[in-house]
Simulated assay, not measured.
Amino acid sequence: MSGERRGPLAAALRLGLRLASGPYALGVRTRNALFARGWKTVHRATVPVVSVGNLTLGGTGKTPCVEWVARFFRERGVQVTILSRGYGSSTGRNDEALVLEENLPDVPHLQGADRVALAATAVEELEAELLVLDDGFQHRRLHRDLDLVLIDATRPPERDFVFPRGTLREPAGGLRRAGAVLLTRCDQVPAAELDRLRDWLGRRVPNVPVASTEHRPIDLVGGDGDTEPLELLRGQTVAAFCGIGNPGAFRHTLESLGATVAEFRTFPDHHAYTAEDVRALTHWATTLPDGAIIATTQKDWVKLRVPELGGRRLRAVRIGLHFRDGEDAVSEVLERVLTSDTA
């Protein structure tokens, strides 16, 4: 899918995947058309709904954006509830929900397959005044007043393919439904690449605001919940692990903080850590050089909740969304939601 593997076999497999992308794309277009023409029912909540989603499979950094949007409305006195599908958890509470609950203790978070039903519960039982739909761009059953679409600048859609040949959940034409586009991880690509992506978006969706953002580390969270400054990692040897959609981005973050990443272990996205995993990580920690710091992401930390591994303190990097440009334009479209007919 990434195109990194070379050779006749890899090329043949990519051709097969490309052929399979056609029926998949047709099915997605047909489904979207049914919703657009009213042949499939779209349910409208009695309060405004803001969706945060993307075009691709894998991580684009939605969780910090969901947190930023929810905080935006909470700072304006709006009672917010977050709704999400809950991918990666059989119990309905996945890593993203745990991170959001940790960082937004005054914002309820409901997870489940039927987000129409969740919306009704949020309004009727939690007295929600606005709903934030996490990963909702392709969830067409629930009407939204605004779609915020995230694009990972390190994985531009103009060079991607529709699943299964690539990571696009739907053709790029779906961007026409977006109310604003947020480019994420803009600090990880050259300026020329970013300009090319903006030009491409300008041709695709000329009237849609586009903002550039990056995910900036805020602080370190210890296994006991205490926070420490990021400077702790500067000049230090770090052994890290994570189970997220874009592990390379986490490694880049550690290196940007001045750490030397000596070892780096990855798990599948939304990995549910088992007792065996903890034992393996504990053994791994005992083999590390003296003085090495063990680091992970907050998404992994909220599932592990262990203060140390192999006698070494475990630290998680907490990430927040930072706008490089376009924040005013995004704030304006969010403010408009509060004055819409639904509100």
Rank of each mutant, 00 (worst) to 15 (best):
L183H: 09
D134V: 13
A259C: 11
A191M: 11
A292G: 01
F161H: 15
A343N: 15
S331Y: 02
V50I: 08
E96T: 03
E335K: 04
E231P: 06
E276G: 07
E170R: 10
E67C: 07
G53A: 05
V69Y: 06
V205L: 07
P48Y: 07
W284S: 09
L254W: 10
R115F: 04
F161M: 09
E228Y: 11
V208A: 01
L148C: 03
D224N: 11
R155E: 13
L304S: 06
A97T: 12
E214P: 04
P8D: 00
L57Q: 04
V302N: 05
L334Y: 00
D106S: 13
L288Q: 06
R305I: 02
A11V: 08
A36N: 13
E214L: 13
P108V: 08
E129D: 08
G235M: 05
R251P: 15
G245Q: 06
G77W: 07
L309E: 00
H252Q: 13
T339R: 15
E335S: 06
R315M: 06
T297P: 14
A120Q: 15
P268L: 01
E129I: 07
L142Q: 12
I218C: 06
A12G: 02
T282A: 03
L168D: 10
V49N: 12
A329S: 00
A292E: 01
A117I: 06
S331F: 03
G7K: 00
D195K: 10
R155V: 11
G173N: 11
L254V: 13
A316S: 06
I293F: 11
T253N: 12
G166T: 14
A239N: 00
R141Q: 12
L338V: 07
E102H: 13
H271Q: 04
V306D: 07
L98P: 01
H215M: 05
S89K: 08
S51C: 15
T260K: 13
R44I: 08
N54E: 03
A33N: 11
G243T: 00
L126E: 12
N54Y: 04
F241M: 05
H270W: 02
P209K: 04
A11P: 05
D328A: 13
G22D: 09
V208Q: 03
V337G: 14
A178F: 11
P307T: 02
L55H: 08
L130S: 10
W39I: 09
I151L: 15
D224G: 13
V132W: 09
S256N: 13
L288N: 02
V205K: 08
V189E: 02
G112K: 09
F73K: 02
L281F: 01
K299W: 01
T154N: 14
